[in-house]
């Protein structure tokens, strides 16, 4: 699967898109762990000192919010999935 990163997160890693290898029964948490293994510099951008994903960070799975429509971190991830992480939107 691959991750898409935007704005501050893209700048922190220097990549708009990051492909990661995951197991067949992987969840979003596994995909996020794989991303952080490749890019530990994201840790401070994404997580509070208590280890919680910051409230202002958005995570989408194929365009949908898994925390609203699915199982959140426990949602299954397939090999063709696109996961995205970004800070608050600021268009207009």
């Amino acid at each position: 699967m691959h991750w898409k990163l935007f704005a501050t997160l893209r700048e922190a890693t220097g990549h708009q898109e990051v492909a990661v290898e995951i197991e067949e029964d992987a969840t979003i948490r596994d995909a996020l762990d794989a991303l952080l293994q490749n890019h530990p510099e994201l840790e401070d951008e994404l997580f509070s000192p208590q280890g919680e994903l910051y409230n202002h960070i958005r995570l989408l799975q194929n365009g949908d919010d898994p925390f609203l429509t699915g199982d959140g971190f426990d949602a299954d991830v397939g090999p063709d999935d696109e996961l995205a992480l970004f800070p608050p939107v600021s268009g207009g």
Partner: peptide, 22 residues
């Protein structure tokens, strides 16, 4: 549009550069 659409704005002034959400 401003609240829901994933668009990100970076501002460059004569003094500094910053992401607007920051």
């Amino acid at each position: 549009l401003k609240a829901e659409v994933p668009i990100f704005k970076k501002e460059v002034t004569t003094d500094e550069t910053f992401w607007v959400h920051d």
